[in-house]
Design a protein around this nucleic acid. Structure first.
Length: 407
DNA sequence: TCTGGGGTCCTAGGACCC
DNA sequence: TCTGGGGTCCTAGGACCC
């Protein structure tokens, strides 16, 4: 029995949620952005798309294209809440659900669709429920695998419903540019074009030997993709994260070492906090530096033992920084903790209010010993610093992927 | 007035070990 | 005169996704 996979993709999710929350925004070109001066467009309403406003644009560019564009700073609580409610709806039709991102999910209805009158009936029902309950549109794609289900929803956007059956696969893919496939980005598309391959049809017919030659081990997978084949299963269970990180484009490019340090402290605190909140310790710290000219590099250090302490993270980030000769003003800084494992739990239990206070004081003391002058900064951060709000469409509503870093 | 932030996975060279 | 082969870990960078 061939599988039946449904892809559900919210239309302009953040923008739609904002328009529902504030009726004055409905029917208007709006864009959801992050906080801070150097933010970009995260999501824009369909009204704004008509003006050519795109994701990733800076706000000046967007305003130039659409002078009446209304900018709304994103609110993660709102989107997370809606996302959680959405999965309640999905669960009525199957337990096999992959919440792929905050606005996208895959449902495996292979064994349940007959109970509801087939996959299209399920898709239509979900669309209606989402509209009735939240006032927002979504697009549904149905296909034998997630690659094609995703493509179906991309094609049907916005507010659409499309079923690509096995027998229709070839027709759909025949003249479709390879770039439209999930997993083929601009770099791969360009390399394929150098081989004379532009459409999925051409990719599906290309000799394996050629693809293997040019793309190595993924050559065969590429060919399969061109034929609409995909065996990636749904990831139904939330998997443990591989890394936890934060990065920040600074309000202004800086070169002052003390200023850089204090940003690193902020990032260390955010990373440590989230790791502790979800009970992970990591063995590797990666520092990311982006210069004013956008050149970006990373440097990592492996710790002697797993940790999630702010102090430990900060200390190691500083060590890495000291090993670098900065050649330009710094635009962005990032810190990531990886090689994660679950904390055994006893450490987490320590974070009762009292113990928490103690360990913070201990960390401050130790920092005081090592870094002296920074302690004031440290202490004042801990007391006054509200965790930064972070807007990223890659969230999940649960687990460590929830970027809400408040404790 | 330029160009966000969260991730995962893969590659490739070098270190290191047996 | 010349110099194995296999495996794993570490590191930096890049492609891709939402």
């Amino acid at each position: 029995m061939p599988a039946i996979i449904i892809c559900i993709d919210m239309d302009a999710f953040f923008a739609s949620v904002e328009q529902q929350a504030n009726p004055k925004l409905r029917g208007k070109p709006i864009a959801v952005i992050g906080s801070g001066g150097r933010t970009v467009i995260t999501t824009r309403s369909y009204e704004a798309r008509k003006f050519g406003v795109k994701t990733g644009m800076n706000i000046y560019e967007a305003k130039k294209l659409c002078p009446h564009l209304i900018l709304v700073v994103g609110d993660n609580e709102k989107y997370t809440h809606t996302c959680r409610e959405l999965s309640v709806i999905y669960n009525r039709y199957t337990p096999d659900i992959e919440i792929y991102s905050i606005d996208e999910a895959f449902l495996d209805v292979t064994t349940t669709h007959h109970l509801f009158g087939g996959p299209v009936a399920i898709g239509a029902a979900i669309k209606k429920e989402v509209k009735d309950q939240f006032g927002i549109n979504c697009t549904v794609g149905v296909a034998p695998n997630i690659l094609m289900a995703k493509l179906a929803s991309d094609i049907a956007k916005p507010d659409g419903l499309k079923w690509i059956k096995s027998e229709d696969t070839e027709t759909v893919l025949k003249d479709l540019p390879v770039r439209e496939l999930w997993g083929i980005g601009s770099a791969t598309a360009e390399r394929l074009e150098q081989c004379g391959i532009r459409t999925c049809g051409e990719l599906g017919r290309a000799p394996v030997s050629l693809l293997r030659n040019r793309f190595g081990i993924v050559g065969e997978t590429l060919k399969h993709m061109g034929q609409g084949r995909c065996d990636r299963p749904l990831i139904v269970k939330e998997e443990d994260p591989k890394s936890i990180g934060h990065s920040m484009t600074l309000p202004k490019d800086i070169s002052d070492r003390e200023a850089i340090k204090s940003e690193l402290l902020k990032l260390s605190s955010m990373v440590g906090r989230r790791a502790r909140k979800y009970g992970f310790v990591g063995k590797r710290i990666t520092l990311t530096v982006r210069y004013a000219d956008f050149k970006t590099f990373t440097k990592q250090a492996t710790l002697l033992a797993h940790s999630n302490g702010t102090h430990e993270i900060y200390h190691n980030a500083l060590n890495i920084l000291d090993s670098i000769r900065l050649t330009d003003k710094v635009r962005l800084l990032g810190i990531s903790l990886s090689q994660l494992m679950r904390d055994n739990g006893d450490q987490l239990a320590l974070f009762e209010d009292n113990a928490k206070e103690k360990s913070m004081l201990k960390a401050m003391d130790s920092l005081n010993d090592k870094f002296g002058d920074l302690t004031v900064t440290w202490a004042s951060y801990l007391k006054t610093m509200e965790p930064q709000s972070v807007i990223s469409p890659a969230w999940r509503p649960s687990g460590v992927r929830n970027l809400n870093i408040k404790n």
